[in-house]
Design a protein around this nucleic acid. Structure first.
Length: 467
RNA sequence: GGCGGUAUCGCCAAGCGGACCAAGGCAGCGGAUUGCAAAUCCGCCAUCGCAGGUUCGAAUCCUGCUACCGCCUCCA
């Protein structure tokens, strides 16, 4: 069975066929580092991570690149918008370079906590200005871009496919009539490739004067530099579809004459408590706040992971709690496996496991249907809990779950150090229980519980876990 | 105004015309087990936003309505 992905460009699920067999070139629109990334951002990055992990699970060699946008882009093409990096710099009394350094470091701290595997490269826009300039020159040479009043614009009328990704054709955009008229442009929908502005703080040399690049060109330039002129997959949030990705296609294909991306994948925005996340509604979450309030990174990851990326996930704190419980159920199961001691192998275990692997893969093959894949795992847990298992059965199951977790990244426990104090208390409690001093035994358990260690008494002895 | 999406149990969420009088997780209730717990097992817990229509058959297709979300200026 082939893997099937929904392609925004064709608006249909289709078989995934990379340009080079067995290899995948994948590019993700990453953070603009002018503030802390919020959980909505992380939904997109966790999706990208899941995609990479599943492709690797399926045996592909994945070349993964995520950009870091550290150039402040004007919010529109008419030279009147604010520059995010500059606004942040003003707010915090720093220069834009410091802002970028600070928030990109924070970004890497956060993705590590969320167990997002690192991409091959995180190219920065500020380090690729020469490549962008060359791309703009190519576009001018091919007659797709023009210089006007020292700025460079892309002529959308020269690229007939403009609008294919988003459905925003030139006619419908003009019908919408919300586009400001810029006298320097030939057509109202033309977009900026280079802004010449000698007074801007972040500026570079170019054939058209000191200035800075337009807000779409970096992804085209960096994906070509680090991957290829034709990408297998390009991801981003749904808000990127237009204008960002539409413009990337125009620039890239305009310059190379080759298809830019085989499969465009876009993550739906999430809601928080059923509403759009916004600072004014007070439902704006960043990872470090959630961690400070006692929620766990793994539970947050599970929450953001467990809904298909094309559904409007509703993020709630109650949901994070539920996720924590769900993860516990899986981890408890794996922990219990270590006590398997049946003397003969259980043929049902292998059969159940085979069915579960098939269910997991069928679900994931179908456009990363994680909810369904997880259901297969939970059904297995319930069924396996009824069985009497040998050590060999348990080893087989653990290996399979290890492979599942290479994809999901939520089962492995964080390294937990059992210090002597805890060990000693467990011993003391056992002695108290032997002596039927249950008051003392319960006091110890409560003490440990308050310190995040949970004890379970079983016929095989005391088992403990971190909550 | 233009383009697009979503609405399934208290909460989250699969389902894409028949195997569904609808997975799975969380929460809840009853029981087994336990010194008490925890974990685990068993049982209970929805006719799918509303109104029509198509079909032998619809959560799944069509029409209308309502609500919410996204894009059309930065935003995952």
């Amino acid at each position: 069975m082939p893997i099937r992905f929904y392609n925004t460009l064709t608006k249909a699920k289709q078989d995934f066929v990379p340009v080079l067999p067995g290899q995948v070139c994948m590019y993700h629109c990453g953070p603009t580092v002018y503030s802390f990334a919020h959980i909505g951002n992380f939904r997109a990055y966790i999706f990208a991570d899941l995609l990479r992990r599943y492709l690797e699970y399926r045996g592909f060699q994945v070349h993964q690149v995520m950009n870091i946008t550290d150039v402040g882009h004007l919010t529109d093409d008419s030279d009147e918008g604010e520059d995010k990096m500059l606004v942040a710099a003003g707010r915090e009394g720093k220069d834009p370079w410091e802002i970028a350094r600070f928030y990109s470091q924070a970004f890497f701290v956060d993705i590590e906590k969320l167990r997002i595997r690192k991409a091959m490269v995180y190219p920065r826009a500020t380090e690729h200005v020469p490549q962008m300039v060359r791309l703009v020159e190519r576009l001018i040479d091919r007659g797709l871009a023009y210089v006007s009043n020292r700025c460079v614009y892309f002529d959308v009328t020269r690229f007939p496919a403009y609008g294919r990704l988003s459905g925003n054709t030139l006619e419908s955009l003009q019908a919408g009539a919300r586009i400001e008229v810029n006298p320097d442009k030939r057509n109202p929908c033309d977009f900026t490739l280079w802004v010449t502005d000698d007074h801007h703080i972040m500026k570079w040399e170019s054939p058209w004067g000191m200035g800075y690049p337009g807000w779409h060109i970096e992804c085209s330039a960096m994906s070509m530099t680090h991957l290829s002129e034709t990408l297998d997959i390009h991801t981003g949030g749904e808000d990127n579809i237009f204008p960002h990705h539409e413009c990337e296609i125009a620039q890239s294909e305009g310059a190379t004459g080759k298809p830019f991306v085989g499969c465009w994948m876009h993550t739906r925005h999430l809601l928080v408590d059923g509403r759009k996340m916004s600072k004014s509604l007070g439902n704006f979450h960043i990872l470090r706040d959630l961690l400070e309030r006692g929620y766990e990174a793994d539970a947050v990851r599970y929450s953001l992971l467990s809904t298909n990326y094309r559904q409007p996930l509703n993020f709630t704190l109650e949901g994070v709690q539920a996720s924590k419980q769900a993860v516990s159920r899986l981890r408890d199961f794996l922990r219990r496996l270590e006590e398997a001691s049946a003397t003969r192998d259980n043929p049902e275990a292998a059969a159940l496991l085979a069915r579960t692997v098939a269910g997991f893969e069928a679900a994931m093959d179908d456009d990363l249907n994680v909810s369904s894949a997880l259901a297969a795992l939970f059904e297995f847990v319930r069924d396996a809990n009824r069985l009497s298992l040998s050590r060999e059965d348990a080893a087989l199951i653990r290996a399979a779950f290890g492979r599942f977790d290479q994809v999901l990244g939520v089962l492995e426990c964080r390294p937990a150090i059992l210090d002597e104090e805890i060990e000693r208390l467990i011993q003391e409690r056992q002695a108290a229980r032997q002596a039927k001093n249950f008051a003392r035994a319960d006091a110890i358990r409560k003490d440990l519980k308050d310190r995040g260690i949970f004890l379970e008494d079983t016929p095989q002895g005391v088992r403990w876990k971190r909550g």
